[in-house]
Write a protein that binds this DNA or RNA. Structure first.
Lengths: 346, 346
DNA sequence: CAGAGTAATGCAACCGCTTGCAAAGTCAAG
DNA sequence: CTTGACTTTGCAAGCGGTTGCATTACTCTG
């Protein structure tokens, strides 16, 4: 009687000190282990009455399948992984949440990996996980293209904010929002803006830089790029010195968190936003919560999560890779941190 | 030669279309599978030279252990799970991040479960996961005590913000912060405050309510509790009507997100914060990012994550349950949403 | 009523890895 | 030389499932 620790047949308080296996169910239902297995995976092969009896025994004992064991023989793990560079960055939680919800509905459990913005940690996570998941959602991956392709060769990968030919990906296209942002600043009389960049490995950052350059050139705006590495509030705060010496009258930050840091740094120096400096963020993750309310470029991360999850689940359902390229448009959301240009030294 | 898809012995480009197994390594290294296994798990039993040869073969082939298979024979999965009611609630990401980081450092991968504030979904997640993890961190669980105890019987559980005798738990104690908040409001002349409560199943909410009642009684403040269910910005916004009819001059919200919603709702009605209404949040998750900057009660969620991870990893390392009860103190952080009382109708 | 077809179930091998036990080899002591 | 102890390695069973194939018992034809 090992393994089953149900108190008695009438009660249903199961302590499950040792997990219930199909063997236990087989014994109780008076059938073979194969039959129990089939009752769950291919019930149409069995006598309906047998299926009923097996299932009854199963939930009497409180059985729940051991996915790890199942995976060993089927290769199907019932798990997916979502890997992000920093779960504490507000862009990612809504995305992760949608992936988790949709995956759960499709019967998958989800691993979360946080690479801390470090490519090698991302590599470790993915290789460690690839033996227990059926697929990956890599959000803003920091890995180089070759390693991502290698990973995809082993398990299907869906990228978010990274554009690699042949792989499934969902891309938030910043150009719409940046065009609007540049036009907005131009209209307000700004002529020189600094762009506070994100991590070098970030596809999003490259896109934003390029889109901004194009838009700025069209509008005759001068863009000064200031490198920032890890996108954080502190990073934004520390970048303020450079911004001020640049002589720019507006700053576009890699994301809202950085923008908020910039505003904090400006406030510390007694510089008024938006009177003395206009600030625009990206991602719209802080909603109207900043002070003053941040003008920003929307980026529906929840929608990106939905798209990524659907892509991955589709691939797993069909059993073959996809090279779909889903693009999500962005827009400028004007709030209170932008105003007519007013050079500090003027 | 199935399974190994290395291009040649000199190059190291591994395509791993099928995973490399210990059998492959055994063949290459000219030893048995047992020896390969031991080279990784108990190298001290082997001739150092053999270990070297095996490891060389292993990384030539790009081997990575299959944790699922290992788990099947050892019962050790190398996975833990962290379950939260809503990863998009800013209280949780820092916590999850710390758990993930510490777990990773200890060699564990982490599953993320999001129960969407629903007890039954939490139950599904935990039972689904219990066959592939060695332990759980349940953050602000919505499950009833019995189900949590049952889960703990199967796999060690560490609770965050839930106090169950005999289980390991880390508790953020709101009383310090609330005492200070009440004293602060009292000093400012407020006599009637509404408390916007969180989910009924939330231990944190019960604690906050009780601590607030105690503090208010001592100070002679009247507290009106307004029920709110799911803690969200929208919920806070919609609660504004009730708050206004209560005649209170200050509101303490279940968390910062709710507080932000309240402020948005008040702004919509043209009610000035803090002149006409003081607002205090909880958790300090929005930092100084709100407008005006929110007076709130700190709750270091990252610290809670550290403590929870250490507790769980300790339990797994030692192999026996703990009933440690870690308490984390809170403080009031005064910013700009509280001011002297000024009744609206006065 | 023999023979074929079908439905329901069991047997046994296998997935990748671990581990108790036994075998083989080495070496020093008796 | 034996013998015993120890080191190093292999054999084979088992973890909890799945699945191809064989088996059994019916049912249906002709």
């Amino acid at each position: 009687m090992r393994g089953l620790s149900v108190c008695d047949v009438t009660g249903n308080r199961k302590t499950a000190s040792t997990a219930v296996t199909i063997g236990d169910i087989a014994r109780v239902a008076g059938v073979s282990r194969s039959t129990v297995s089939r009752a769950f995976s291919r019930p149409e092969l069995l006598n309906p009455e047998t299926v009923r009896r097996v299932k009854a025994a199963a939930d009497q004992l409180g059985y729940v399948v051991n996915h790890a064991a199942r995976a060993l023989s089927t290769g199907r793990f019932g798990n997916v992984a979502v890997v992000v560079p920093d779960i504490a960055n507000p862009f990612f939680p809504p995305l992760v949440r949608r992936v988790q919800t949709l995956a759960d509905a499709a019967g998958y459990a989800v691993f979360l990996g946080d690479s801390d913005e470090i490519a090698d940690r991302e590599a470790n996570l993915t290789s460690r996980l690839s033996a227990q998941v059926e697929g990956f959602v890599l959000a803003s991956p920091r890995l180089d293209e070759q390693r991502i392709r290698e990973l995809d060769a082993a398990r299907p990968v869906v990228l978010v904010n990274r554009d690699i030919e042949g792989l499934a990906r969902v891309l938030i296209d910043p150009s719409g929002g940046l065009d609007e942002a540049v036009a907005h600043l131009h209209r307000l009389g700004h002529t020189r803006v600094v762009y506070l960049s994100g991590p070098r490995e970030s596809w999003s950052d490259q896109q934003r830089r390029a889109a901004l350059d194009r838009a700025a050139e069209r509008a005759g705006l001068e863009v000064i790029v200031q490198e920032l590495g890890r996108p954080s509030s502190a990073g934004g705060r520390d970048a303020v010195g450079g911004i001020l010496t640049s002589g720019a009258t507006a700053v576009i930050a890699f994301d809202d968190v950085v923008a908020q840091g910039v505003m904090a740094g400006l406030a510390l120096r007694g510089i008024d936003v938006p009177r003395d400096m206009s600030v625009i963020g990206c991602d719209d993750t802080l909603a109207a919560g900043t002070h003053p309310a941040l003008t920003t470029i929307s980026a529906a991360s929840a929608a990106a999560g939905d798209a990524a999850a659907e892509l991955l689940l589709g691939i797993l359902a069909i059993g073959e890779r996809s090279d779909a390229r889903v693009s999500i448009a962005t827009h400028l959301v004007v709030r209170a941190t932008t105003e007519a240009a007013h050079p500090i030294d003027g």
